[in-house]
Nucleic acid binder design. Structure first.
Lengths: 222, 222, 222, 222
DNA sequence: AATGAATGAGCGTTCATTCAT
DNA sequence: TATGAATGAACGCTCATTCAT
């Protein structure tokens, strides 16, 4: 169960440069993540990041041409870390599809309890409302999550047409994300997450299994 | 169906409404909300708010002792507007409990499609991670929502113990909120919200009806 | 002779505001001019200007939306001051045209000896090479100067066609400006300016009087 | 006529040409000149110069101990290039003195139309107002020019005392320089330069020939 | 009620420079 | 020779805030 650990950041190594440079690069992104998690996006200033690295602000410009670029790299590294974790689950040669779904739900909800996830995702959601880059990148992440869920649904209830499967996957993914604000790290129902996991698993599995093809009225057009 | 309109803001008249004009007070909060919705929290500066009111920044000090206070009043008015709306639903003298639940789910999910809700709630969630005042106020809002759901669950499945009812209400509430990032205003699946509503209703109703008392393992402690 | 004084700056009063505001506005422009004259354009930073006014840099933003705007206002006020001075000369009801030309040359060359003119104009010329706004504004100033010279030429040698008059006016104006770097304030031949004035007057007057219509080959086209 | 080409830069080989490659040294100065000409002194930063050479800024320190030193070398090389060109003219074994003067005026004014001269000299004039080194070096350059003109004047009008000759040479040199801002590269009257050349030649030759010794009142003292 | 004018702190960024590699 | 990495200072600018008018 504890083998599902989303790494803090997944940083693509820079080409060239000394070892010290790669260190500094990663140090900056880790510091930025820490500040984002601990103090929120408003506190995410270059001076603060630099201070957290024991650097001067000017030196950040050496690693990142602009704050915007730093942020992009940070968000990318954050999101990549989740994508990487998802890939691990998907290729998990576990028992049957239902077991794998149970496992996926458990793992996602457990991850939501981590401080990083609880703190970072609401920031991403808020940013994505006004920043197309974030929107796009977040969208990609969830798309990958839905693909995984989708495959499990197809195994559990093969009669379900693809369109309905996708909707159910969307509903399941969203349902889980929605727990963040209530049972995430430091939230009032943090300790209730295990119970919520049981409810979620039971609910999702029944939903998948009970849906008849065509049962959901799909609005045509747009 | 369209009678469920969350008012933009619910502004409680200033206690001891002396001096400070109620009019300017409300104008400022509405301008602030609009900026928050349209441009995000980063753009929510006093200068911008003042400009949107046709005022100069200095004059805001007449109405609010500080930006922080203005923000508190704004968030409070936003959250109050939702609370007010919830009260309306709860006292809806509709048919049976299941019908009322269906209606509640529909109304909540429809509201999530509104630009205001899609834009404001992620901001609230992000802020609540670092601002105890926001956290507390958001918690209150959702508590009220869960109470309403809880009552409906009790009617539908009276055998369910209160603790399990509360968990289910929490799950349902969180599930719905989780749709915001996917099928909210301007989101990729905005147009799929009606289908999601069907899935949600079906899923929630089955969940409520099918749960056996004691089926959920409740961790003792905390 | 000393009645030809180019005012330091010609500042168009701002509309509205307190008296203190107009003061600050003018103070800033005067301080900026002084720095430009005494230390050159490289030293013309907002912090320095503010310091010279006893202000903090942030307050400059209250008067000018950007440094660029401040510079535009400064250059405009500088150039306007010369235009104003020129208008005075032109409408001078002095003796005959030749006398008026002598007087104009004397006055221009005397002005060139002033510290302000010696220091500011090379900056303007340099800036105008890369800043279209400065180029345009400087062009306007000299155009006005040439118009004045042109009128005098027309009186002295009425047979000269307009095109040739304009070229001679251009040559005379340029000749005078060219003294700046050699006999301007603090330059090696500053003390020789009176002698240069005599040479210039003699040379210009003969040139004007001796030119035959058509003597200058005018390249057709462009 | 076109044999009068001012070389871009005249770079004296490094004394004790050890170590520091002459090649990189020249490359840097050429890049700096290009930036000065194309973008102006404000854009003349070490980073930009280095980038134009395909180097990193740090490497410039290998060739020049400081930016100031680089600038000195640059300006020196620029000015030297003009001095070299002047020497060529002076030793031109052309016909009589008047012809040589005509040729000199033509060549100088043609050179003024070049982009390099039009762009660089106003920068030099502006810098010389605040930088004694530049002032001194520019002074030297023009002194050499005046010497050449002076010799021609002495040939054309041998009766003229040396002091008056020098003043006339100064006037002629300054007159020509003054065309830069009006008929230089990209200036409004660029295409009128040939006509200005005719005017200048006619005017200068008459001035030289017509002056009587003692006609100019020379102020005694400094 | 509201503006005008000012402040002090901080923002992201650029600069010349240094020095180990 | 040249880059990588870092610094310290300054840049133009924006911010919330204050207070006299």
């Amino acid at each position: 169960m504890t083998d599902f650990i989303v790494p803090d950041l997944r940083i693509t190594p820079r080409e060239g440069g000394y070892a010290r440079g790669q260190e500094g690069f990663e140090q900056i992104l880790h510091a930025a993540l820490e500040i984002l998690v601990e103090e929120g996006s408003k506190a995410l200033t270059l001076r603060r990041i630099a201070a957290a690295c024991g650097m001067k602000a000017g030196n950040l410009a050496y690693y990142f041409p602009s704050k915007d670029e730093l942020l992009r790299e940070l968000l990318n590294a954050i999101i990549s870390s989740y994508e990487q974790a998802f890939d691990v689950i998907v290729h998990d040669p576990a028992a049957d599809a239902e077991q794998r779904l149970k496992r996926l739900v458990t793992l996602v909800l457990e991850d939501i309890r981590s401080k990083k996830t609880t703190r970072v995702f609401p920031e991403l959601w808020a940013m994505s409302n006004h920043d197309p880059f974030v929107q796009e990148r977040v969208h990609e992440l969830y798309e990958r999550a839905r693909v995984a869920i989708n495959e499990l649904i197809a195994e559990i209830n093969p009669r379900l047409p693809v369109e309905e499967r996708e909707l159910v996957a969307l509903f399941i993914s969203g349902s889980m994300e929605g727990m963040t604000m209530f049972a995430g790290y430091g939230k009032p129902f943090e300790s209730r997450m295990p119970a919520l996991e049981q409810i979620a698993v039971k609910s999702f599995i029944h939903l998948i299994g009970s849906l008849e093809p065509g049962e959901i009225e799909l609005p045509r057009g747009i």
